[in-house]
C-alpha cells in the first residue's frame, strides 16, 4: 500500500530522499525547486515510512500527508473575470495544491448569468479528463439550483460550492455540496473561511475515495505511477517539456505533456519488464488539454491480467 506524502525541505541533500524513495519501491511524483527550498510529492510504501521519517528528520525537513497526491482536480468558475477571481477560485485551487492534488482552473466561456449560462461539449470533455471537479457558484439559492445543468453531463464526481445552505437532496447531480463559500471579494483568512476550505478538501477526498473504490472492483492492469516511471525512462523528451509537471497523474492513467502526433508512437512502444507494451495495456489518445497525450490504463476485465 503506497502512502501519498509531501516533503518540504532544503535543496541540500534532498536527492538522498529521492534515492531512498526509489530504493523502497516508491515513486517521486513531482519535484518543485523554489530557490533554496524543494517540495517533493512522494508515494511511499506504508511499512517503510519510518525509514523515510528518520532521514527527513536528519535533514531537518518536514513530511506531511498529502491525501490528494497523484490526482488531478479541476476548479471550474463561470468565467475567468474579476467577479469570480482571484479570491474564491484561487484559494480553493491553492488549497487543493497544498494537499497534493494537481489543480487546474477552468473558466467556462459562457458560464455566466441565470438564463444565459451554458457549457459546451469541449468544456465537459476537458473536465471529464480530471479525477474530480469543484464547481464554484455564487450566493443565490435560486441560481445554484437552476445552474445544475452545467454539471449534469459531467462523468466525474462534482463537488459543488456556493454561499447558502442547500439540502443535498435538492442537488441530485452533485457528489456533495459545500456551503458558505459563494462570491467572496477578499482572501480567505478567517478561521471559519479556512474551515470551509478544509471541508472542500475533505469532500474532494471522499469523491476520490469513491472513484478508487470503483476502480478496485475491476483493478487497472498496472498502476499510473508505474506508467509514469516507465515513460520517464523510455521517452527522454519528457524531461525537456517546459511544463512544471511533464507527466500529470490521474487515478486511471496519466497525461503526458508532449505533442501527440510527434510522440504517440514512442509512448505506445514503452515496454515494461513483464514484456508488454503500454499500447497493449492502455488507450493512448489526444488530450483535450492543448495537444498533450492522454493515457488511460485498461482494467483487468479487458486485458485479463494485472502486473
Amino acid at each position: 500500500m503506497l502512502e501519498p506524502v509531501m516533503f518540504t525541505g532544503g535543496v541540500y541533500k534532498h536527492d538522498l530522499v529521492m534515492e531512498l524513495v526509489e530504493d523502497l519501491g516508491g515513486y517521486v511524483l513531482q519535484k518543485n525547486v523554489t530557490q533554496s527550498e524543494v517540495i517533493l510529492l512522494l508515494l511511499v510504501p506504508k511499512e517503510d515510512m519510518e525509514a523515510l521519517k528518520a532521514i527527513i528528520s536528519d535533514l531537518r525537513g518536514e513530511l506531511v500527508r498529502a491525501p490528494l497526491a497523484g490526482t488531478e482536480v479541476a476548479v471550474v468558475t463561470p468565467t475567468l473575470a474579476i467577479h469570480h477571481l482571484p479570491h474564491t477560485a484561487c484559494d480553493i485551487a491553492e488549497y487543493l495544491r497544498r494537499n497534493g492534488a494537481k489543480s487546474n482552473m477552468i473558466g467556462l466561456a459562457r458560464g455566466v448569468g441565470r438564463e444565459t449560462a451554458q457549457i459546451n461539449e469541449y468544456e465537459s470533455m476537458l473536465i471529464d479528463e480530471h479525477d474530480a471537479v469543484v464547481f464554484i457558484f455564487g450566493n443565490f439559492v435560486e441560481c445554484i439550483r437552476k445552474k445544475e445543468f452545467l454539471y449534469r453531463n459531467i462523468n466525474i464526481p462534482v463537488v459543488v460550492t456556493g454561499g447558502p445552505e442547500i439540502p443535498k437532496e435538492e442537488l441530485p447531480y452533485a457528489f456533495e455540496y459545500v456551503p458558505s463559500v459563494g462570491r467572496i471579494t477578499h482572501r480567505a483568512k478567517k478561521a471559519t473561511e479556512l474551515g470551509t476550505l478544509d471541508k472542500i478538501i475533505e469532500s474532494v477526498g471522499r469523491a476520490l475515495d469513491r472513484t478508487r473504490t470503483d476502480i478496485s472492483k475491476d483493478p487497472l492492469t498496472t498502476s499510473p505511477p508505474r506508467v509514469m516511471d516507465a515513460v520517464r525512462e523510455q521517452v527522454p523528451e519528457v524531461e525537456y517539456s517546459f511544463s512544471p509537471l511533464p507527466i500529470a497523474l490521474n487515478l486511471n492513467g496519466v497525461r503526458i505533456k508532449l505533442p501527440y502526433d510527434k510522440h504517440k508512437d514512442a509512448v505506445r512502444a514503452v515496454k515494461f519488464d513483464e514484456g508488454v507494451t503500454l499500447g497493449e495495456v492502455a488507450t493512448i489518445r489526444p488530450s483535450k488539454m492543448k495537444d498533450y497525450i492522454l493515457v488511460r490504463i485498461l482494467p483487468m476485465s479487458e486485458t485479463g491480467f494485472v502486473f
Binding site: 455564487g138 450566493n139 443565490f140 439559492v141 435560486e142 454561499g163 447558502p164 467572496i184 471579494t185
Partner: peptide, 22 residues
C-alpha cells in the same frame, strides 16, 4: 433587498462594502 434570499442579501452587503472600500 433580495426577495427570498436572506443569505444572498447578507453576502451582497459584504461584497459591496469590500469593493467600495477597495
Amino acid at each position: 433587498e433580495i426577495a427570498g434570499e436572506e443569505f444572498g442579501a447578507k453576502k451582497y452587503r459584504e461584497i459591496i462594502m469590500d469593493i467600495l472600500q477597495d
